[in-house]
Amino acid sequence: MLADPGVVQALLAGVIVAALCGFVGVFVVMRRQSFAGHAITDVGFTGGAGAPLAGLDPLAGLLAFSVIGSIVMARLGDKIRERDVATGVVLTASLGLGALFLFIQTRYVSQPAALLFGSIFAIRSGVLLTTMVVGAACVIALAILYRPLIFSTVNPETAAARGVPVKFISTAFLLIMGVAVAEAAQLVGVLLTTALLIGPASAAITFSRRVPWAILFAVIFGAVQMTLSIFLAYASYTWPPGGKGWPVSFFLGVLALGTFVIARFFSAGDSRRSESNEA
């Protein structure tokens, strides 16, 4: 199996994306911004589809839209209560624009196809390199913001009172997350990115409340889940009914949810957090 260069490249790309998503994901889950994390992939793709209509590079459109989308989400949703709706509104606008771009290109110009499932076994090395560069930049940016970000995540009021620019931090975080996630989605598809962003991080947080440990766990969980999914996808080719490789997104989706449920089960005793039980 490892003699297959496609599989090796898939493992490489998968682990890189898992590490990036694990790192960013811990903050996403702590700040309860999973919806934004998922929605920004859609927003990014809309930009990627729109850019060629204006004769621009799809990657430029992807980055531009994820930056604009993150800023609008942050501006509209600075209170936690408003975040869900703010993300929903940005997603609505982006899906609407997506319909417009699709309409224009159905009649007039060509576009890159959006990826829901992605094709991790057929990655072009150029794209992998871009993702590594952009991902590294995002990790460095997050490392610089690390202390104030944690402070304003855990206790926004106190942080604001102590002079931490909470609003700026929150916008900056969404921006970094948006770029990281949109870029990852371009490489491995929306589904794998969302699963890797939320699954490992939310399981890790139930194991350790200390952020550095949670990040470490999230990166490990993500890398393990991704590797396992790729192995299973490879092995499943010989499973009944035979000759049909089961998709990576199926294995990862199930593993991500499963790991979280198990982690939740084991930590059930000590996590009686009194958070509101809505919807």
């Binding site: 889950v29 309860r32 911004q33 999973s34 919806f35 994390g37 998922h38 869900d84 829901l116 499932f117 589904l191 969302t194 699963a195 962003l197 939320i198 699954g199 991080a201 939310s202 947080i205 089961w246 998709p247 997104s249 199926f250 294995f251 990862l252 989706g253 199930v254 991500a256 949810l257 979280f260 939740r264 059930a268 996590s271 957090r273 009194s274 958070e275 509101s276 039980n277 809505e278 919807a279």
Partner: peptide, 22 residues
Amino acid sequence: RGSARDAITALVMTAALGTGAL
């Protein structure tokens, strides 16, 4: 049990969509 509602939504969605791909 309260917390992580948005994370659960994301995980149920990705698991379901992955099953759709299957």
